[in-house]
Amino acid sequence: MIEIRLHGRGGQGAVTASRIIAAAAFEDGRYSQAIPMYGTERRGAPLTAYVRIDNVRVRERELVHTPDYSICFDEFISMNQIIANSLKPGGVVLANTKFKAEELPLAGDIKIATVDATGIALKHLGRPITNTAILGAFAKICPEISMKGVEKAIYKYFPGRIGDMNIAAARASYEQVSELVPAINKEAPKEVVEIVSGGYGALKDVSGWRVFEPVVDEEKCIGCKNCWIYCPEAALEWTANNKPAMISRSCKGCGVCANECPVKAIEMKRVEVKKK
C-alpha cells in the first residue's frame, strides 16, 4: 500500500485532487481511497487530504500518519517543514513553489521535487487553482499512477472544455517538474512559520491566504475611503495622512479595494513568497 498526504488551502482544489488521484489509480487497475480532512474550512484556510492506493480493497479508515508522498498545493505552506514531517524514510515531497528543490527549507530523509504550479494555473486556467496543475508533476515523479490515468480521471471531474484546460495544466506540470533531489538539510529549521488554521471566529494571521496583495500608489490616491470602508477584514488602516495602509496579518487578497478604487490607485500584485 502507498499513502499520500496533500496539503492545500480551501479553493485550491486539494480535495478534488485527492479524488482524482484515487480515480486515476482505479483507472490503472488499483484499489484506492481518498479521505479529506475538513470541517467548516473556508476558501483560503489550510486543509489536508489523504489517499491510499493498494492492490486490495482498502479497509483502513484512519487518516494517513506516515505517508510515502506529500504534495503541497500552496506556495506559502511549501516553505513549512510540516509538509516533510512524518514521511516514511526516503519519502517524497512535491511542492508548489518557484524555488528550486535544493532551496526549500525542508529537512529529513526525504527527496524533494518542485514545480511552479501557481504560475502554470494562472497561465492555463487564469486562476490560482493549483490542483490539476500539480497532478501532472505527481504522475511524473510517482510510478504508482500513470499520466494516462490522471488524464482520464480529470475528464471525469471536469468534462469538456474545462477538462481540456485542466489537462493542459497537468501536462505542463508533467514537463516542468524538477528532478527529485535529496533534502540537504538534515535537521528542520527551528523557526517554523505558523500555519493558521480555519474554523469559526477571529483568526490571528491570514497573510498566507493571499496570492495577490494590494499595493497603494499614494500619489494617485484621492483619500475617498472607498477601499477602507469596503474591506471585509478591516485590513486597510486609515492613516493620519489620509491614506490607506495594508495590515498584513488581516489581508486575504480578495481585491475588492482595488476594484472599488475610483482612480485605480491600488494594484493587486502577486505575492513573492520569501525564505525566512
Binding site: V15, S18, R19, A22, A23, F26, Y31, S32, Q33, A34, I35, P36, M37, Y38, R57, V58, R61
Partner: peptide, 12 residues
Amino acid sequence: YDGYVLSYTAEP
C-alpha cells in the same frame, strides 16, 4: 454511516 471518513471519502 460515519460522516467525513466515509461520507466524504472516495473509493471504488
